[in-house]
């Protein structure tokens, strides 16, 4: 979150869990109706967001758990999403202080790179295990996700930006 003039409200863990589950729900929508390649990966997006926002709470463990859920939900090879999510979340963790002070649109660029990296990791894993080469359309999803970064970040910050009662 870019530097702001006032202190944000603390985030409750239940909110993190709720948004992640909501993202999982969005990912589980029947995207194949409009072409599964175009589906933005909301889970990855939310993991990145919370890792950036709450680096002390959300980390590689969460990435692993939700990656496992995605693997099972998609019927993929187990471990594919877990590894990709773990890697990108770790990268965000290691640079979170740097990225945090960027404006949103620059963060979005960073997220685009990370999400593309996740797709590349998964594609490489599939190639190693003998799948066919996927088309270029496999890498469209990250662009849509990155495009959603700014509105989603703003939306989630609405809660945190609510002014803390003076009586605190």
């Amino acid at each position: 979150m870019p530097v702001t003039s006032h202190l944000p409200r603390p985030v409750r863990p239940s909110l993190i869990l709720l948004t992640l589950i909501g993202a999982l729900l969005l990912n589980l929508l029947p995207w194949q109706l409009i072409g599964s390649h175009f589906a933005p990966d909301f889970v990855a997006l939310m993991l990145l967001y919370w890792t950036l926002n709450q680096p002390r709470r959300v980390g590689v463990g969460w990435a692993f758990v939700f990656g496992l859920a995605m693997d099972v939900a998609d019927g993929n090879m187990l471990g594919q999403h877990t590894l990709a999510y773990s890697v990108i979340v770790y990268l965000v963790l290691s640079r979170s202080r740097q990225i945090n002070i960027f404006p949103f649109w620059q963060q979005a660029l960073a997220m685009l790179g990370l999400l593309l990296l996740a797709q590349v990791i998964m594609a490489v894993l599939r190639l190693i295990t003998g799948a066919d080469m996927v088309g270029v359309s496999y890498f469209i999803g990250p662009f849509l996700s990155a495009f959603l970064w700014v509105p989603i970040s703003n939306l989630l910050l609405v809660y945190q930006r609510k002014s803390v009662p003076e009586s605190l």
Partner: peptide, 25 residues
């Protein structure tokens, strides 16, 4: 105190992921 470092965690969970993949495939 934050527990293990992020890199350590990454190594742990990557290993787990790879183990999952090997076990699955």
């Amino acid at each position: 105190k934050q527990g293990p470092k992020p890199l350590t965690r990454l190594l742990i969970f990557s290993t787990l992921s790879v183990a999952l993949m090997v076990g699955d495939v």
